[in-house]
Computed example of a mutant assay.
Amino acid sequence: MSADELCGGAFRYASADLEKIMGGEKEFLSDSSDYLDTSVELVERTREEGATRSRGRAQSKCNVGVRARSAYVVTRYYAPADLADRGNVRGGVHYDLGLHATSGFDTAKIYFECVSPNLDGSVKDPARIMIDLGYRLSEGNDRLSEGKGAGTLRETYMRLAHSAALSVARELECEGDGGLPERLILKRIN
Rank of each mutant, 00 (worst) to 15 (best):
E48P: 03
F11Q: 00
S32Y: 01
T107A: 11
E113P: 00
V123K: 15
A10G: 00
F28E: 08
D96K: 15
G56D: 12
R45I: 10
C62A: 14
L99H: 10
E113Y: 00
D31M: 04
A108P: 14
E25D: 09
L42R: 12
H100S: 14
L18M: 02
I129G: 01
F112T: 05
G56C: 05
H94C: 01
R57Y: 11
H94A: 15
K109M: 13
S70R: 09
R53P: 11
A101D: 02
C62M: 12
T75Y: 04
R57V: 07
D17V: 01
K124T: 13
Y111K: 00
D85H: 10
L42M: 11
I129N: 00
A127E: 09
R128K: 14
G92K: 01
E49A: 14
A10Y: 00
G56W: 03
S116F: 07
G50E: 10
D31K: 04
A127Q: 04
L83T: 12
R67L: 11
T107K: 13
C62G: 12
A79H: 05
R45E: 15
E27G: 07
D96P: 08
R47T: 02
V115K: 15
G87M: 01
K124H: 12
P126M: 05
I129Q: 02
S39D: 08
Y95G: 12
S116V: 08
Y111N: 08
R47A: 01
S122D: 14
K61E: 15
V40Q: 09
L29E: 11
Y77D: 10
R90W: 01
V74M: 10
V43N: 06
R86I: 09
T52R: 02
G9E: 11
L36T: 09
P117F: 07
N63H: 03
D120N: 12
R57M: 07
V89R: 08
R55S: 11
H100P: 03
F28V: 06
D82T: 06
S60H: 08
R55G: 08
K61S: 12
M22P: 07
S103A: 15
Y111H: 02
V93D: 09
R76H: 05
A101L: 03
T52P: 06
R67G: 09
S70T: 09
N88V: 03
L29K: 10
